[in-house]
Nucleic acid binder design. Structure first.
Lengths: 341, 341
DNA sequence: TTGTAGGCGTTATCAA
DNA sequence: TTGATAACGCCTACAA
């Protein structure tokens, strides 16, 4: 007990044990929920814990258990998307929420990409700072992923890696199916000249969404050649949409690979006097907050970021417990129909 | 130690020392940059470290140094603003960036408010999981702040606490000055009937911005009674703006306490056929990404979230080093003039 | 400058 | 069911 003026060092197991009238070993067992403890001893220890405000020293515990009771969330994005994109905040929130019932902590690693940084990160993880990792891999990130794949650290990726042969577990939304739904919806609403503002080719989500768009058009027997690339930013999407309109003045349908880009496309279309959805039907992807607030509001495919985070946590926990979690997961998506198509 | 050709367990100091032909103590000194090491010994140890891929076991180190080399970032928000608001992502990015040059890690604590959770958090911090904490205190959060103030954990708040008498260090932007600048700008542009969409009264930023707005009007000898409250969400702001327009049809200037809310107000004004800036001059607060992308783009006061994060880190590091960091800081703001006023 | 030895707080092993 | 006792890997007086 601290008598407000005395030494303020945290109570240790020794003091708890002494107060409870048992040995350290018994106190430890009682605290860690072991079964080989008499009810009397357990009660005494619990009382002593309450009285002293004892908390186990995590370093000491970790030293002997070889676990840290924490997991790392790795976000290898350096650019400004980190601020802009609600995706990361949603994932982070999902992870911490999913972990709230456990007593695992989240250690955050935000870093630049590149081989050096990758090695540092993996070194950190191997160094025993975390029991496992969730990697939010939006970009290609070969270095981090490669190094991780070559290690024995339990890790789950959010967003599939490019190289499907790597021994890695991941969870992703069915980007191709979402894009396909979106495009089919455009066609169902009567669009016949359908373009797309795609994401950059070094992101699997971008590639998969492009694939889905192509598939829907192929099935309808329509050409899939009205493609422009952007970088998932509003500015990039605005410029790309301008190019597309110049190249394809007859466009009557547009699938844009993210809501943020779709909002920018909306502005460009308006600036060109093209009404949405009357002249051009428009569908986005993500269904983040933003989608409901544009005018017209966006029809869009759902990207369940929070759910992906929860699943990733589940899988990682299973891995850590040795009870599975080695199977990658593709979450379904659906289309939310609003005013833009 | 498993034999599939390799040694499974991470190399320890003992092996490094043996390989370098020195004692554990010398190896430790060499690794930790101590000066009492001969160049030869140091070189040998460094070579051994490289060869073995040695990384100090953080738990063992922490056990004896009584430091964890990690700091906690506490975000006691439970509601959806966490996803929506780029403020948190920006702060997080700022913190990790500022910490990149050190070898401190970030432990993320996202939690509900309330006394129980507050005690748990503080217990966690006192338990020796982190050397200090940065608390992003947007809301009132009396419980967390009170408990923290009563502890001896080094902590820096981002956003001033309501109770100024608490022995806490914090960094904040000069919200009142920003609001004042904004309102003065409205007046300079000719507005005479100036209202405000304020934030909720349990947030110091909201109160300070309201204060600044009042001050500017008082100085100009104009009434400051056209106030509606919202909760920093777009929907809340839209409803509030509707109320304000109903109450004050003659409004010709509007200060909105955040860009996100200002964007919503913009829509409402447009829906009522009020042109911005011709009929109503509008100024927001924050200067986040969004501000440049509304139409017209928003004139707004800068909220330097990243800079606040960096300063908070600096202050906390100083505290940990015992070299100051006990003085709270108010960062200046400025007005960014765009099309809305 | 280097090495010896002790201890940080906990859990795990083994007798009792 | 309990209690000695030995690790866990590292740092740091202290002595050489």
């Amino acid at each position: 007990m601290v008598s407000d003026g005395t030494v303020r060092h945290a109570p240790t197991l020794v003091e708890v044990a002494r107060l409870a009238g048992v040995s350290r070993a018994t106190a430890s067992r009682a605290i860690n929920g072991g079964d080989r403890v008499s009810p009397a001893a357990r009660a005494a220890v619990e009382a002593a814990v309450r009285e002293t405000g004892y908390r186990p020293n995590p370093a000491a515990r970790s030293l002997v258990t070889r676990r840290t009771d924490s997991i790392a969330v790795v976000i290898p994005e350096s650019d400004s998307r980190l601020f802009t994109d609600p995706f990361f905040a949603t994932v982070l929130h999902g992870v911490t929420t999913a972990l709230a019932s456990t007593d695992l902590q989240v250690v955050l690693l935000i870093g630049q990409r590149g081989v050096d940084r990758a090695r540092r990160m993996v070194g950190y993880l191997r160094g025993g700072h975390a029991d496992g990792a969730i990697v939010v891999s939006h970009h290609r990130m070969d270095s981090v992923v490669d190094v991780l794949a070559g290690s024995d650290i339990p890790v789950v990726l959010i967003g599939r890696p490019f190289d499907a042969t790597l021994p890695l577990t991941w969870v992703d939304v069915d980007n191709a199916a979402g894009a396909r739904l979106a495009t089919e919806h455009l066609l169902a609403r009567g669009a016949r000249r359908v373009g797309t503002v795609a994401g950059p080719p070094d992101m699997s989500a971008a590639e998969d969404r492009l694939t889905g768009w192509r598939a829907a058009l192929a099935e309808a027997g329509l050409p899939a050649d009205a493609v422009v690339r952007a970088d998932f930013t509003a500015d990039g999407a605005a410029a790309a949409t301008e190019r597309l309109l110049a190249e394809r003045p007859g466009l009557d349908g547009l699938f844009v690979a993210s809501d943020q880009m779709a909002a920018a496309a909306l502005d460009v279309l308006a600036a060109h006097g093209r009404r949405v959805p009357d002249d051009v039907r428009l569908v986005g992807f993500d269904n983040m907050d933003l989608a409901a607030r544009t005018r017209p509001p966006l029809t869009t495919a759902v990207n369940p970021a929070g759910e992906m985070a929860r699943r990733a946590v589940q899988m990682l926990l299973a891995r850590l417990a040795g009870t599975g979690g080695t199977e990658s997961v593709v979450l379904p998506t659906e289309l939310v129909v609003r005013g833009s198509a």
